[in-house]
Computed example of a mutant assay.
Amino acid sequence: MKTLEPDQISLLLNNKGCEHALYLSYICENLRQFGDYSLVTNRLTTYPQTIEELLNVLLNEVYAIIDNQSLVDAFFKLLIISTVGILESDIVNLLQHFMNKTTDENNQILINRMIWSTLQRHMKTFLDTTWMDGHQLVIYRHASIEQILRKRCLKENADEIRSLNSFMAQFYHKYSTIKDFSFRRIPYHYEQAHMYKELVAYLRSSESRGVSRTDRQAYLRRRRCTKQLSFTDDPFNQRAYLCHICAMQFKLGPYTMAKSSCLICTNMIMGGNMTQTNALRREARVCQKHGSIGYPHSIQCIICKSLRPKVTGTAPSVTDPVPLNICFDCWFAGGAIPRCCGFELE
């Protein structure tokens, strides 16, 4: 404001939009980047009087200046989909993979640090940075710009939104430079992409160790089957089992022993592998859809889906299937009623 002449300040303050601090901040940032000082007065007369109109004007100018409009669209879309921002260290690599996801090796589009710097300079009015867990992220300056860009770029296209989330999950899984941050973001994007099979498999893998217990529980409980079971052991109310191979490979959870892990949230059940009654556990049971058609004569591993005869009347063996349990928290969160512990993956 100190660099403006009195008549220019008057023009600025006479704009009704400047009653709002956010509107004024957008204009000041835009003027700061305005190259020709002699044209500032004319520039001040062109600003509309609402935030939405102003942002659309500024966005139109960005699209007019930058030759590669598809690159601008890609960045805006990915930043929207990220919800928390994009790692500064990932942006070039992210755009490179996104712009070339359908091109062959001979027609690759080059995205380097210089291209990103140019893009960033023109979009500076709309962007800001923040820190999360010690990592710098690029974010939108305000929710208002995100709302306008969501309407403008995504247009509530559900298929495109799922596709973008799928891309983000795959990128974080394979190419991100900061694994501890990226691996915590993968479940969100799997869920938003409706990739439920991949979501459950990931949360049961060792790669998901960085996902917090609360987040893990929330993601997995949302996928739990809603089928209510009877009180009798029959084909419609089957005991859930894990085959001995999956049990030995700890396939049920990322860092707990199979016999003491909750089938739903994968957290360890204290004393879960002991035979006596335990108030912290409940039997894990599944409906016919998630169990074996031949139950009770045959049982199905909840992980690998292999079928095998149910062992009866013989001494215990290391190759016997492992009966599974759920923790008290998951039992209570599920309504404290007999309910299927399988996952809906479609």
Rank of each mutant, 00 (worst) to 15 (best):
I269T: 13
R224W: 01
V211F: 04
S230G: 15
R222K: 15
P254K: 11
S230I: 02
A218V: 03
S206G: 07
L229C: 08
Q217M: 04
M257V: 10
R213W: 00
A258C: 05
P254Q: 02
A193T: 10
E191G: 03
N267E: 14
K197N: 09
Y241W: 05
H194D: 14
N267I: 00
S261R: 02
D233S: 06
I264Q: 08
P235T: 13
T232E: 06
E198P: 06
N237M: 01
D234N: 15
Y255A: 06
F250T: 13
Y255G: 11
T226Q: 11
K197F: 05
T266Q: 03
C265T: 01
M195I: 01
A240R: 13
Q192D: 00
L263A: 08
L229W: 05
K197L: 13
Y241E: 12
R209C: 11
L242F: 02
V211I: 12
V211E: 06
C243Y: 02
M274I: 13
I245K: 15
P235C: 10
K259R: 13
E191K: 02
D234K: 03
D215P: 07
A201C: 09
L242W: 02
P235S: 10
S208T: 00
C262G: 11
R222H: 10
C262F: 04
R224V: 14
K227H: 14
Q238W: 08
Y219C: 01
E191L: 09
A201N: 10
N237Y: 06
T256V: 04
I264K: 08
T256M: 05
Y196I: 03
S260Q: 12
T256E: 02
C225Y: 00
S212Y: 04
A258D: 10
C246I: 09
Y219I: 01
A258M: 03
V211G: 05
Y219H: 07
S261I: 03
L263F: 03
A247I: 06
Y202T: 11
L242I: 09
R209E: 08
Q228S: 10
R223K: 15
S205D: 05
L220R: 11
R239V: 11
